[in-house]
Amino acid sequence: METTTTTKGYQPMEYKSEEGRLKIFGFWIFLGAEIVLFSTLFATYFVLVNQTAGGPSGKDLFEIHIFATETFLLLTSSFTCGLAILYMRRNSMKGYLIWTIITLLLGLGFLIMEIEEFAMLVEMNAGPTRSAFLSAFFTLVGTHGLHVTLGIFWVIGVMIQVIKRGFTPVTSRKIFMTGLYWHFLDVVWIFLFSTIYLLGVV
C-alpha cells in the first residue's frame, strides 16, 4: 500500500508510510476534539466569570509579571519545538536533542510557575472551592496545565525512543505528533492569556 503523494518530489519521513499519514491525520482530528473541549471550558468560564460570591475577582488576583513570564516561556518553547522538528528533517540528531531539551526546560519552567501561582492563590484563600469564578478559573487553566504536564512526559518518552532507534518513519512520526500537540497547547494558551488574564486585569 505504498502509494506516494509527493509534492515536488520531497516528502518528509513521517509522511512516507501509509500508517504515518493515517496517524497524523487522525491526530489532527483529535486536536479538533480538543478544541471543542477547551471551547466548552472557556464557555463555562465566561458564564461564571462574575460569580465571585463576595470573594476576589480576576483583577484582585492576576499578576502581570507572572502571566507575562509564563506566556514568554511557553511561546518560546513553541519556537524551539519547531526548531527541533527542523533539525529532525535535516537528520541532525544533535540539533534535535538540543532543541528538544530546551523545549522541555521551558515547558517545565512554565509549569513550575503555574503551580506556584496556584499555590499562592490557595494560600490567599482564593482556591477553587472559594467561588464559582475560581472553580472555573482553576479548571480551565488547570486543564491546560495538565495537558502541558502530559506533553512533557510524552516528549521525554519519544526522545528516549529516538535516542534508542534513531530517526525512522515511526519515530519521526512520533516527533511530529508531539510537535503538533505542543503548538496546539501554545495556541490554547494564547487564548487563555488574552481572554482570561488580560481581560481579567483590565
Binding site: 460569580q51 464559582a132 472553580s135
Partner: peptide
C-alpha cells in the same frame, strides 16, 4: 461530567448556587 465530578468530589462550585454557580 468532569465539572459535576469536581463539584461533588472536591467541593467546586460550578453548579452549586451557594458559591455562585449556575
Amino acid at each position: 461530567l468532569a465539572l459535576l465530578t469536581l463539584d461533588r468530589l472536591f467541593g467546586f462550585h460550578f453548579f452549586t448556587l451557594a458559591g455562585g454557580g449556575s
